[in-house]
């Protein structure tokens, strides 16, 4: 039993940390801001923490620094990219992520170049991770309710309508952008603490793909979707392998890609959205049966 828990603990920790990555993308998408810059900030967070830790800086201070730097960078980036929307914004943030990667590789001694940084010694317990992620979830939950929740809903779907309803869309979008960077950096920092390393692949294309996938599969309208998506995507390779169908585990990547494709097309709001659709279908059925 303890052995079972022990092996699942690593998985659990991974899910928690990656949930933050998913949150960083989700919170931007939820505001209608197609930004994947959270991934670049994940790398910034990982490296800031690692660099500071290797120089003996207190862990908490290092985490705060990582988040703070990401906030500043995100804010500046949001100003630079203010007029962009949709795909263009998305690709610009991908370009930003790649540039972070290039900066890391060319950072010489400071960033360890292609090799990255090793020997980060800042252990973190599962409980601490649960608390951190819990607090972030709480914050996101609060942002999905009441005035702000409704406002973000409209900013996401219909900007000019939002403006006509006295909603400062620019301010809300910037806020989402910066928060996305902050959460991404937090995740990256915790990840570096968990693994003990920071690597240039932290800003790579696959990370971007994974982050996007988690949010698409789970559903980007709510933090719950991102959490579900993170858990599911991380579990999938294990799940497929454990099913043990002959040769099946070799094809997990194909299943993975097909899953993303299928959900993106047929469940655009993710699994969570699928549940909501069900709920409104029930509502409609009830109405139809109620009206004569």
């Amino acid at each position: 039993m303890l052995h079972f828990l022990a092996s699942w603990e690593v998985f659990f920790q991974t899910v928690l940390v990656n949930a933050l990555l998913a949150f960083s993308v989700q919170i931007a998408l939820r505001a209608g801001v197609f930004s994947l810059a959270g991934v670049g900030c994940w790398a910034i967070g990982a490296y800031t923490l690692s660099i500071l830790n290797l120089r003996g800086v207190n862990t908490l201070v290092a985490i705060v620094a990582a988040v703070a730097i990401a906030c500043v960078v995100s804010y500046l980036l949001s100003l630079v990219l203010v007029r962009l929307r949709g795909l263009y914004l998305g690709m610009a943030t991908v370009a930003f992520n790649q540039m972070v990667g290039v900066a890391i590789i060319n950072g010489g001694e400071l960033t360890g170049g292609e090799m990255g940084l090793y020997g980060v010694n800042a252990p973190v317990t599962t409980l601490q991770l649960v608390i951190v992620v819990g607090v972030v979830c709480l914050m996101l939950w609060a942002m999905e309710r009441g005035v702000l929740g409704r406002a973000y809903n409209i900013v996401r779907d219909d900007e000019s309508l939002a403006e006509s309803l006295a909603i400062d869309t620019g301010s809300l979008r910037r806020f989402a952008f910066v928060l996305s960077g902050a959460i991404g950096a937090l995740g990256g920092a915790l990840n570096a603490m968990l693994l003990g390393i920071a690597s240039p692949t932290d800003a790579d294309f696959p990370v971007i793909v994974i982050a996007l996938t988690m949010v698409i599969v789970g559903g980007f309208h709510s933090w719950r979707g991102a959490l579900i998506g993170a858990a599911l995507i991380l579990w999938l390779p294990i799940g497929i392998q454990s099913f043990g169908i002959r040769g099946m585990h070799e094809w997990w990547s194909v299943v993975y890609g097909a899953l993303i494709l299928g959900i993106a097309v047929y469940f655009p709001k993710g699994l969570l959205g699928g549940l909501q659709k069900l709920r409104s279908l029930v509502d409609r059925r009830a109405v139809r049966e109620a009206t004569p």
Binding site: V147, L148, R150, A151, L165, I167, D168, L172, F175
Partner: peptide
Amino acid sequence: DKTRLSGAT
């Protein structure tokens, strides 16, 4: 809501 939303988010 619009009567309550102010500038800074």
